[in-house]
């Protein structure tokens, strides 16, 4: 009987495995047709109504490393794209991340619903409305989840900041988007000591979003509401623990037993980097020294007084 169950289970597991693999293989095969053209780096067209050049290239290597690597192009795009030449009306295709990401149980922890609400309150949406979409920051063909999974904080910082810098470090792009000429980033941030070090160590969004989000905050604030008070990061209850270090803080706290370990191990933030044991030890030594000197002083005074009285 056991043998039968074993054989039966094996067959089921094997077929599931094959089925799963087949799905990926299928996706790759379907994509292969698309990539015949779309892997060309220069594939693009000029939208005549807006004059904007639309990039249609997708780099297969990046796509297959991205979080969407198991999807086929037509899982998101219209199946009609399988016909070539593509029908003209397909240009109007309007994709939205939350069509997939909103209701599924496995996406619950990412709080997409909140992200959508935050995005609607963000300065990007307020200024640009529906012209600004998820895809302006997140390229679905190369998107990789970072902050939650990457233990190398500096890599997360680099990845996330590049998203902002794609537009914000480019004066002409910003001018096209906002209609105004903004000062260069190193000028607007000149108040920040060690600019380069800050930019390598923290993300733009750590200062420029509201830190109370359940996931990664998408509430990009107007510039006058950005964090400018050093102590908000440079203190024991650093806001970085709720933003950049959020996903590591809990694990590290459980392991190391003290909350600032995560910052201590990854970088150095004056005011926030405090070694618990050294801190405790210093207080103890300091206390002992003060007590010893006080006792010594009192004894000296008493013996001196005694001598005077004796005389």
């Amino acid at each position: 009987m056991k043998k039968i169950i074993f054989a039966f289970t094996s067959v089921i597991l094997l077929s599931l495995h094959l089925f799963a693999n087949t799905k990926i293989v299928d996706a790759k095969e379907i994509n292969q047709n698309c990539f015949r053209c779309h892997s060309m780096a220069t594939l693009s067209y000029k939208d005549e109504s807006t004059g904007i050049i639309k990039n249609l290239a997708v780099i297969p290597d990046e796509f297959y490393k991205s979080n969407h690597k198991n999807l086929s192009c037509i899982d998101c795009h219209s199946k009609d794209f399988q016909k070539f030449p593509h029908a003209a009306n397909l240009k109007k295709e309007n994709l939205y991340c939350l069509d997939c990401h909103k209701n599924e149980e496995k996406f619950k922890k990412f709080h997409f619903q909140t992200i959508e609400e935050e995005f609607k309150q963000s300065i990007h949406y307020k200024k640009m409305g529906d012209k600004f979409t998820c895809f302006d920051c997140h390229d679905p063909h190369s998107f990789k989840i970072n902050a939650r999974v990457n233990r190398e904080i500096k890599e997360t910082v680099l990845y996330d900041n590049q998203i902002c810098l794609k537009c914000h470090d480019n004066t002409s792009t910003i001018k096209n988007l906002s209609g105004q000429l903004l000062p260069a980033l190193n000028v607007s941030h000149s108040w920040l000591p060690h600019i380069d070090l800050h930019w390598k160590s923290v993300r733009c969004i750590d200062c420029h979003t509201s830190p109370n989000a359940p996931g990664v905050s998408h509430l990009i604030l107007p510039k006058d509401q950005a964090v400018k008070n050093c102590v908000e990061c440079h203190s024991k209850n650093s806001i970085l623990l709720q933003s950049l270090y959020k996903f590591q803080t809990k694990q590290e706290r459980d392991r190391e037993g003290f909350i600032n370990a995560v910052i201590l191990n990854n970088s150095y933030v004056i005011g926030a980097t405090r070694n618990y044991y050294l801190n405790l030890l210093s207080f103890i030594i300091f206390g002992i020294v003060l007590a010893a000197l006080s006792i010594h002083g009192i004894l000296r005074w008493k013996s001196h007084k005694g001598t005077l009285d004796g005389k």
């Binding site: 000591p193 008070n229 050093c230 102590v231 440079h234 203190s235 004056i270 005011g271």
Partner: peptide, 18 residues
């Protein structure tokens, strides 16, 4: 002041201290 910076009771402002 920097090592024990505290936003609630700043004896001297962080930037000034630095």
């Amino acid at each position: 002041n920097m090592q024990y910076a505290n936003p609630k009771s700043p004896i001297i402002e962080f930037h000034t201290a630095v």
